[in-house]
Write a protein that binds this DNA or RNA. Structure first.
Lengths: 231, 231
DNA sequence: TAGATTGTTAATCGATTAACAATC
DNA sequence: TAGATTGTTAATCGATTAACAATC
């Protein structure tokens, strides 16, 4: 069963591209507000600090088509990105763990713009259960499994303490979850059909800190240039 | 000035590797607690769902050396990762924007384990200024510039509303900041010496959602296998 | 010794970048 | 028409994976 050339399966868009699309979207929205009808790759690239060819490839992946000499039609391109990313299809999401981070995510504005709807949070703290936060109900953790199943929830946000991460994950998987947005520093064991997107904050900060150290060494080697304060 | 072979500059560790190191570190710590003296790549790879060869390469980048047939010495490897990632050198950090997300980051445990110390938060809301959160003072935003300079702060966490992102960034850069951990959905314009690590939450969730859609199409094409609830 | 595991060198794969033709 | 910009095909680059020799 080799892939035939006339296979209509859309080619999977590379993850780096997917991560850049929201930036294009936001910028092009700005162009729309400024009543501009077309936008070029060069403009986009310059505004976002990217390579123009890369922008072109990325837009191509969404199905947007540009016109030589003119650029990309603002409206059509916004539509293409929306369609491609599924900003239209609202997706109900559960949040598990209503601690500080969980609450911040509950209050996070802008989920809805991208078609996400956090419908409820779950927590095991009796003091929180039954209350609301940012207009979303906090429910008893024991109800999680049943509700995932009955409401056919596909995506869960995992913001529980690291110690509970795998247990809660097992529950979610058993209940039929399809994807987990993981804010715990734990590598989750899941069956291969279940997607996990890790959001390891400490790891990201470590990367930044290490790169800073590198750049420090490098610039020190290259030359002793002026004090950064005066830039 | 071509790089000579006996150049002692340490080769920059690839970002994907840097992101995995904290996972190795955590797992090997667990092995230490379990009083195991050695750990092999295969064990690590299996526990973390990675490729054993990749683990070997990653550990190699930290300077850790293993012994054939035996594996990696737990203590020595932990030391190598700590040394490599600079977990020892404490780094003072400022948080800008004490909204829900900012507060969650203030309360985030585990920063200190990796050598980070969030010393203060800054906000423009008079109701917050002067108070404390999670034991950290929230200071008047106008003092940011001066304090970055005087305390030689190198890393800032940016958790302000998108509308303020670039303005605050400019202030930080002028004050001599070296790296920004950016939680806003804005692509920041900074001079090239300043590092930016983007943490675009909505973009990450979009990626997950899109990949879910892909996998749905794919598995639907491949076969109509049993209901996920019964896995 | 035999077998497991590391270390190293080569092959593969995917994303980015470059080159250039097509076009409005 | 000339020039700017897209679309496409090829080259480059870096990370992952594979193959295999070295070693305890």
């Amino acid at each position: 069963m080799s892939p035939s050339p006339n296979d209509l399966t859309p080619v999977a868009i590379p993850e780096p591209t997917l991560k850049r699309l929201p930036y294009y979207y936001k910028f092009i929205q700005g162009q729309r507000e400024a009543r501009r009808e077309f936008v070029s790759c060069t403009t986009l690239a310059e505004a976002l600090g990217l390579n123009a060819i890369q922008v072109r490839k990325d837009l191509q992946a969404t199905g947007a088509v540009g016109r030589p000499k003119v650029g990309y039609h603002v409206e059509a391109t916004l539509d293409a990105i929306e369609e491609c990313m599924g900003y239209h299809n609202t997706q109900d999401i559960f949040l598990v763990g209503a601690g500080h981070l969980g609450q911040a995510l509950l209050a996070y504005p802008g989920f809805s713009e991208f078609g996400f709807n956090v419908v409820a949070a779950f927590d095991s703290d009796p003091a929180k259960v039954g209350t609301e936060f940012a207009g979303k109900p906090i429910l008893e953790a024991s109800r999680l499994s049943d509700l995932v199943r009955r409401m056919h929830i596909q995506i869960a946000i995992l913001a529980v303490p690291a110690t509970a991460a795998q247990t809660v994950t097992d529950t979610l998987v058993q209940a039929g979850i399809r994807a987990i947005w993981n804010f715990t520093p734990t590598r989750l064991a899941v069956p291969k059909e279940v997607l996990v997107q890790d959001e390891n904050l400490l790891a990201s900060l470590s990367v930044l800190s290490k790169q800073l150290e590198n750049s420090r060494v490098k610039s020190h080697k290259e030359s002793t240039h002026g004090k950064p304060e005066e830039l």
